[in-house]
Design a protein around this nucleic acid. Structure first.
Lengths: 337, 337
DNA sequence: CCTGCAACTGCAATCGGTTGCGGCGACAAT
DNA sequence: ATTGTCGCCGCAACCGATTGCAGTTGCAGG
């Protein structure tokens, strides 16, 4: 940058101002042009480290997610990337594998890199790490999963409405004994969906005895299959299941097959998320579509807002929750009974 | 860090050396202990920006890939993360969508962030960007796809051997009219696999006329379906197809269904990659397994080696190619004829 | 007792930008 | 002609670490 300044015949401070966006008014338009030209000619790119050192901002944000290998998350990441990139920000992605220790390590590593904020998709309903982050006043936006006490803004799908759609669909198809294979109760999504399931079935006048709920140990195919086997043993009379998510639904499909039942002839299954390739399963899965890409863009937008606010010394906004609308995608895993 | 030094009663230079790994020998063991204790007590974490500014190394590498949403890439990323993290490095992930303009933007952005090197999974056989990177002496390791002239080390699956396995499998099942739905010829993977296909079928004494090759416009389901329709129209007599990758295979499955043919009864299909969920397709796909996670770890290892070498002022290593062994996974999309 | 060497440690420069402050010239107001 | 204002720009400090160089100390050898 000194070179640029020299070539343009000005002091590097002036060059800095000319190149900067918001200090551009402080420099003569003609001078600015000369600096710009010099910069282009020299192929100048600012040194991020130097800038960060001085300004205390790195234009990076940390993204905490369970596992990139879960098809749920890549679209979210792409969404965040979309808006972050436009503002010159970059995401540092960290996989936690739902392991608190690993999460802590990743979090500290990210902090060590002076990220300006966090996007976290790994929130637990009780989450020590997030409590700390809140106490430290870090800019954070939650994606998908929230904490019981609303510490940070949350961007998620309208899970309650989604579950209602699923239940409505099954009831309309004539099902009267509907099970819910819930995700782990420590996650807000599971909590919300389970409550919504109870509310929805009772709104249709179904008794609790006809709407059993089994909790899967995790949002995974294996846990889904295990829970499904349990359910099928206890309640062979269920004709439909609302799965906590698509992976659990996939586990259910396997369990049904393993127990000699057919889907959808014997049991209808509804998933949740509409993740990639669920339309290719056998049978293609009826599910609730969640706009993951937009979850990412909205969350990133909120985070940048929060970062800007903090940079201006204003106090944090209220931890508002943004719920995106979901819709039902009917495929072949559900049928009239 | 000045605080740490003060608390330990030493100069910050000494503190720096005590905290550093390779300068630790230069400082009295007792002093070092005091510094460490002070650092721990103060919860000191080094400022990455300051260090980078001084040392000209950021401990970050850029990862260029087509699209994180393609199930191929998350495992690779996790693999790279595994070895990078152990060495204190972090990956900056950039999606190019196979768009040269976007790739260029991402590349420049990464350069602006002073990444220490690149992991590139977007290589074309002729690639201007990579030529530049090579001329600039940047540390780069290629993953999966190579360039025609070997500029950089490459880590990939042994595609030729993989295709040979696929062909062998089909021949053993009695197929004698086998098509290849190749990926775009501008990609080395497609080039290698196509050549390997030719070699393999001719090794089994099959005539070129009985082993047609159709090129798909891209490694995607849509392009695969299009190419498959073309093939089925021209050569309704083929009884088996070797797809360029799993997505193309998926397109083939759709095309077969759309044209009233059954898989595997009428046509057997072999995919390539064994990406997640291909075991859940209808029918579950026979395919060639590629160890993507290890592709990632190997590539990251090679890159770090290259970076270290350069930091020591040694010259770049020869652009060696590491081919990882593949194996056939037989499922239900192939059958005896 | 002096010298030489090794082992530590401190000093200060340096990396490449950013920014508060002050200087300077031009021009208007008085 | 003097003073005030404004626009533009330069000076120099600063961000937080790293590192070449030199100084100090302790100890062994002569």
């Amino acid at each position: 940058m000194s070179d640029v300044a020299e070539l343009a015949g000005v002091h590097k401070a002036t060059a800095s101002r000319a190149l900067s966006v918001d200090a551009a008014g402080q420099v003569n338009a003609d001078t600015a042009r000369r600096v710009l030209a010099a910069a282009r000619k020299l192929g100048y790119t600012p040194n991020t480290a130097a800038r960060s050192l001085r300004t205390n901002r790195t234009l990076t944000v940390g993204v905490l997610l369970p596992d990139l290998t879960n098809p749920l998350f890549p679209p979210i990441v792409r969404g965040t990337e979309e808006v972050l990139m436009a503002r010159g920000y970059t995401a540092l992605i960290a996989n936690t594998d739902n392991d608190p220790v690993r999460e802590r390590r990743q979090f500290d590593a990210l902090l060590g890199r002076q990220v300006d904020g966090f996007l976290v998709a790994t929130a637990l309903r009780e989450h020590a790490l997030l409590d700390e982050a809140h106490a430290a006043g870090l800019p954070v936006v939650l994606i998908n999963r929230g904490t019981d006490r609303p510490l940070f803004p949350l961007v998620a799908g309208d899970d309650a409405a989604g579950v209602a759609l699923a239940v409505e669909h099954l009831v309309e198809l004539g099902h009267r004994t509907i099970a819910h294979l819930a995700g782990p109760a420590g996650l807000s999504t599971a909590h919300v969906r389970t409550r919504a399931f109870r509310a929805a079935v009772s709104a249709y006048g179904l008794a609790a005895a006809d709407t059993p709920i089994v909790e899967a140990a995790s949002y995974s195919q294996e846990a889904g299959a295990d829970a499904a086997h349990l359910l099928l043993a206890q309640r062979p009379d269920v004709t439909a299941v609302v799965a906590g998510n698509d992976l659990i639904a996939l586990g259910v499909l396997h369990a049904l097959r393993a127990s000699g039942r057919r889907c959808p002839e014997d049991v209808s299954v509804v998933g949740f998320n509409n993740m990639r390739f669920v339309d290719e399963l056998q049978p293609p899965l009826t599910t609730i579509h969640v706009p993951h890409f937009h979850l990412g863009t909205e969350a990133a937008r909120l985070l940048l807002e929060q970062i800007d606010r903090r940079a201006r010394g204003e106090e944090a906004q209220l931890p508002k929750t943004i719920l995106l609308p979901l819709h039902l995608v009917v495929r072949a895993s559900t049928q009239r009974r």
